[in-house]
Design a protein around this nucleic acid. Structure first.
Lengths: 271, 271
DNA sequence: CCGATTCAATGGTATTACCATAGAACATTT
DNA sequence: AAATGTTCTATGGTAATACCATTGAATCGG
């Protein structure tokens, strides 16, 4: 064909149908048209409505599920349900970055110290009596749990985590809380899965009490010192968990390889 | 059937095949068995190797792609390629949280001020001459770009962003950098997409120069002031982009993300 | 009324066929 | 021989169909 003219035809940009579908549903969630707990039409219905195949719909749903926008239940009365986004997405992202080696445990610790210190100092100037009460209540709660049970591992006293999250909450800043929660969630799940060692919750709690007292003095320097000591103590346990686990830091559990190939064979094929 | 015995048969837990596949490939990436740029077998080959259908494989690839572990190219010599994880995952997560309304622009701004302030203070005590040189080089680079072009919108001087990221880099902490980058990336793409207004890059650059000078004085208090003014200025532009007018300015005076330490003590504490 | 059974809606998997894309290999022309 | 155009082919993208698995609801039987 002769090049008589130019730019008469707009080039066709073929975006992947599943991407378009996922994008469309995301927008509906953003706009509020789809709210948490809402149920999407069944895969078959969606396919018909979108003039597409069921598999295309499924791929879109897989993506949305992976990003945490929906969760899927099988069976009658099942389907895809819109889910309220929470901090797990952040935790997932952070976990990947660490597992893939882009972020070291040292960096995690330092970042947490930096951010949590900033949080504490930000809170210090405006903390209310009610908030102080909440902290105290948290400490007492942990105390009673420790008195009842044997209080062996840290997982048995999950309330200990809340102490830190409480501080983040006091900033009234959801994003700071997401960041902190991601770092904390990784740490706990890491310790739990890799090496459930004994972390002396009582000592842990004691340090919380120290921090609490420091906050009441409203002395920023002292607060920072106490908090840092506490966090570096936790970090030390992370390190112990790492080195005490047969040098397989990231092999979390044996997955069921059932009908799948061993990794080496897949690797071979990828030449 | 009579209940003669119990617990003889292990209940079958049917995990979704695509999940198992995705998990397996992820583990191979974590372990280094699959490195960036490596190419996975074709969908058809994978299906055969895994004793599963091609659609199942595709769903797994969709998930991995959504999480940023692979990218997929169509055509001959195409396929699924392992991708080095970068900050885009964090940006994506943050963007979702904001778009869905879990995090407000105000919170974004405050969090950025909190974190970037902490970063700056952390850097202040240990910044080297070479690092100062890098900052200066960045400023000069932006300058020359501004002199050449008309310098209308901020997107034409992307180097302006690097100034902030440079500071984060000096902390030697990848995670803090990821956090900061996510916040910055959202802001820029938000302004660009929602309302590409003129942001006076020259004024922007001037403030960078101010910050640079402040850093050289190594006065934490002064540094913080200058940085905060700069960041709240940026935030104001975000608001303008959103509302299209300057009618709802930030009440900068109310925000108390500042630290309470006197300068000398902060200097001492710099990690 | 209650327990067991069946039913039906929905997601999960597999197979097949064909289209779309993009490099590579090949052929043609200069 | 080099440049250019064409065809080939491996690969992802989409669709349609069939059937399995799961799970809550509806139904049936006592």
């Amino acid at each position: 064909m002769a090049e008589a003219v130019e730019n008469i035809f707009k080039p066709v940009i073929q975006k992947r149908a599943s991407d378009v579908i996922a994008e469309q549903i995301k927008e509906m969630i953003y706009s509020g048209e789809l709210a948490p707990e809402d149920r999407l039409p069944s895969e078959r219905d969606l396919a018909v409505s979108l003039h597409t195949g069921r598999m295309t719909v499924r791929e879109a749903l897989r993506m949305l599920e992976e990003s945490g926008f929906i969760h899927i239940r099988q069976g009658a009365e099942g389907g895809a349900f819109v889910r309220k986004l929470d901090g797990s997405g952040m935790t997932k992202t952070l976990t990947s970055l660490i597992k893939v080696g882009n972020v070291s445990l040292q960096e995690l610790t330092e970042a947490r110290v930096t951010i949590e210190t900033a949080i504490l100092e930000s809170v210090l100037g405006k903390i209310t009596d009610e908030q102080l009460m909440l902290l105290q209540k948290n400490i007492e709660q942990c105390e009673s749990i420790l008195l009842k049970g044997d209080g062996g591992t840290i997982e048995e006293v999950p309330q200990l985590i809340n102490f830190h999250l409480l501080l983040a909450t006091f900033t009234q800043n959801g994003l700071l809380k997401y960041f902190l929660q991601a770092m904390i969630d990784f740490s706990t799940s890491y310790v739990k899965q890799v090496a459930p060692i004994h972390l002396s919750p009582s000592g842990h709690l004691g340090q919380h009490r120290e921090i609490f007292e420091a906050i009441k003095t409203k002395d920023p320097l002292y607060c920072r010192e106490v908090l840092k000591r506490h966090l570096y103590g936790i970090a030390e346990n992370l390190e112990i968990a790492m080195h005490g686990s047969k040098n397989e830091p990231f092999d979390i559990g044996q997955r069921d390889t059932g009908l799948l190939l061993p990794p080496e064979e897949i690797k071979k094929m990828s030449v």
